[in-house]
Design a protein around this nucleic acid. Structure first.
Lengths: 188, 188
DNA sequence: TAACCCATGTAACATGTTACATGATTCG
DNA sequence: CGAATCATGTAACATGTTACATGGGTTA
């Protein structure tokens, strides 16, 4: 018998999965797609997390599945107990982000790198956020049409707006930073 | 004999430590403080990482220490080989950030939470970034005075500016999001 | 001398991704 | 039928934090 995959209470992936299931029953495969398609830039889950967590959530009675083991698809749905556990977590103050921003590490020490490296990195970051902004516009259109009537749409718009504002700020930052590097190179 | 702590080439903490050592010799304790004080919002390292990594870097000849084992302080300095390895890493394109933003997860599913939760979360985030902005101003003053003459200061300013712009964008986002939630509550 | 910071280090745990194994189904 | 995709699942690895153990130095 394999050791039961212990999953602590604080594990955020648990709650991400419970949250996704409030929008309708989903299999492990569906969950993966849900995160990739709807929250890709802010959250992701891999199969290596999803399947074990679904099993423990099921053992705890927070989700359930009608499908028998071995069946082709095993969609899970959230239980009433699961909704309560989720609601409690949602109400806790959010942990502050202590992100590790690789490009900033590379820029901070860019004096050790060949010249031009900082500029190249800024171009990469800029292009990425320009592309994100385009994708956000697609999502915005969906929120204004097919999803506009849903109660939760205001929360989804707010989430989207976070992404838009951050990406806009970072595009502007890339431009300003590039200019600052040029100025410093001109007047040494 | 304990199994040697394997540390892969791609481990970013290695390079963060090498980078910090380009600014002068540092012990494990110093390194921890260096990250906390200078890069706290963008990068952090814990002792559990620092000490084992210092040992492997030393075994690889990328850093060295004059102190004997057991001495009170063991400051390490980067070697020429270390500088080369670091420079190679710095020149690689930065990995794109696939951050997991807890507050966005909580807002996305806030329809499942008691009313008022979203508002409370936004206030927490707002306060945090207002505070960050104040700290950034302190750093800005140091960059304009004692550190102004250093060659690398332009890179440090750029790093700081990233933080400023993101925090400013997020304060504005909190205000706008709060307003949007109020509007939605008024006109249901 | 007791309390507190400095400093190094380890072990246990938590969390997460990647790569693989396996097989069903669909579609050209 | 062969290739691609759907779908579940596991094992190995990578990375990281937290909590603890240990002891030297400083100062009230």
């Amino acid at each position: 018998m394999p050791a039961p995959a212990r999953v602590r209470d604080e594990n955020r992936s648990r709650y991400a999965i419970l949250g996704a299931l409030t929008l309708g029953p989903k299999s492990g495969y569906d969950l993966r797609q849900f995160f990739a398609r709807n929250l890709g830039f802010f959250w992701s889950e891999s199969f290596g997390q999803i399947y074990p967590i679904l099993r423990t959530l099921s053992a705890e009675g927070l989700v359930e599945s009608n499908a028998d083991a071995g069946e082709r698809r095993r969609p899970y749905q959230i239980t009433e107990a699961g909704r309560e556990v989720l609601a409690r977590w949602l109400a806790q103050p959010p942990a502050s982000e202590i992100g590790r921003v690789e490009v900033l590490l590379k820029l901070f020490f860019a004096g050790e790198a060949p010249p031009g490296v900082a500029h190249a990195h800024l171009q990469v970051v800029r292009a990425e956020h320009v592309q994100r902004l385009a994708q956000y516009e697609q999502v915005a259109r969906r929120l204004d049409t097919e999803l506009a009537s849903r109660d939760e749409v205001v929360y989804w718009r707010v989430t989207l707006d976070y992404g838009r504002r951050v990406s806009e700020a970072l595009v502007a930052w890339c431009d300003a930073a590039d200019q600052a590097l040029r100025d410093a190179a001109d007047a040494p």
